[in-house]
């Protein structure tokens, strides 16, 4: 009881990266809280999946296997998760901040009347003292996220109404096997006891899932543009530089919102979190929401007209100048020197 739970998303017959990252984080939270780590797996036909999961240090896997549970639809998954939470009373429940997690977690939070913090960039355990009531809370989950235009970092807690729930984007937490030989137990659920007919009213008529062609997470060099790039046309320069260096193109939310590039290239709190060897920030001012998605880059080069843009504080090199001048020169000298 009072354990840490992670809802695991399934991608065909394997567990999604974001869920494995959360199991890794969940394990460290469970160790800190001196409790167990439990995983929820809902879908169909996932033989042998426990092998993928146990090694992250999972003590219990709850499995709901039924043809109607895959692909994901909200209601049956929500019913199963809600009943599991009711039966097990975990203290922490984590979901990926994915299309699935962001659809499911709020429905569950509403049904269980508990708090939920979206898109956390850090999770820690700590205490809380309420002076007014002279009441001390031990070992709460600190749910940390940038808020409000990125000008502030907020630490959110749910002192009273548990479980404490949070969603986290893919790539924010590290994925690390705990112990290759770790063994826990499997709890197979009788799906009919956890769902009802109403749960299956939504019918999926058509479904096209494509593996993203953009691989920002795996790129070792990223050329990223912000609103300061100025236009979709100007982004061509960034693509050219990325091509020459063997990198990938990304951008800030402002650039995506302005229509300069596709959403799947967005880097930051509500996009992808990246850890490249080199990050070239072009015309990016560097709001917190963007920085939390790229500040683990080994090296940052900023190209900006404004020498005082916030990004300059985290950049290793600040090139003060116009993209239209700087980028062609970088390409030129790269070609000359790399031979």
């Amino acid at each position: 009881m009072r354990n840490v739970f992670v809802y695991c998303e399934l991608d065909d017959n394997s567990v999604a990266d974001v869920s494995l990252e959360l199991l890794t984080k969940g394990k460290s939270l469970a160790q800190r809280l001196n409790c167990k780590l439990e995983a929820i797996l809902i879908g169909h036909n996932f033989n042998g999946i426990e092998k993928q999961v146990f090694k992250y240090g999972v003590d219990v896997i709850h499995i709901a296997d039924d043809k109607r549970l895959s692909p994901y639809t909200t209601l049956p998954h929500a019913s199963i998760v809600c009943k599991l939470l009711e039966e097990n009373e975990p203290q922490v429940v984590l979901f990926g901040a994915s299309s699935v997690g962001r659809d499911l977690a709020p429905r569950v939070a509403s049904a269980r009347k508990c708090g939920l913090t979206a898109d956390c960039t850090s999770l820690e355990i700590g205490d809380h003292f309420v002076k007014k009531d002279n009441k001390e809370y031990k070992d709460l989950l600190y749910q940390i996220r940038p808020a409000f235009g990125g000008n502030i970092i907020a630490t959110i807690i749910n002192p009273d109404m548990h479980p404490q729930m949070a969603t986290v984007r893919e790539g924010v937490m590290k994925m690390e096997v705990f112990d290759e030989n770790y063994k826990g137990v499997i709890n197979r659920l009788d799906v009919s006891k956890y769902t009802n007919d109403f749960d299956f009213v939504i019918e999926i008529i058509e479904r096209h899932i494509e593996k993203s062609k953009v691989n920002l997470k795996g790129a070792s060099i990223i050329v990223a543009g912000g609103y300061g790039v100025g236009s979709k046309e100007n982004f061509k320069l960034l693509y050219k530089l990325a091509e020459v260096l063997g990198g990938e193109v990304g951008g800030s939310r402002a650039a995506v919102d302005a229509g300069y590039l596709e959403h799947e290239r967005q880097i930051g709190q509500t996009g992808v979190t990246v850890r490249p060897k080199l990050y070239i920030a072009c015309g990016i001012s560097g709001a917190v929401q963007h920085r939390v998605g790229m500040d683990k880059a080994a090296m940052v080069i900023s190209i900006n007209n404004d020498p005082h843009a916030p990004i300059s504080n985290i950049a290793d090199y600040n090139i003060v100048g116009d993209l239209a001048v700087v980028i062609p020169k970088l390409i030129k000298y790269y070609k000359e020197n790399s031979k």
């Binding site: 708090g115 809380h128 000008n151 502030i152 970092i153 630490t155 002192p159 290793d316 020169k329 020197n337």
Partner: peptide, 28 residues
Amino acid sequence: PTKVKNIENVILQAKESKVLTASDGDMN
């Protein structure tokens, strides 16, 4: 259920960085 425990202004810790111009020499 959710309470804001703490709000921090974002203070950027300046790291040692080199400032370059767009000149050919710097770029090279």
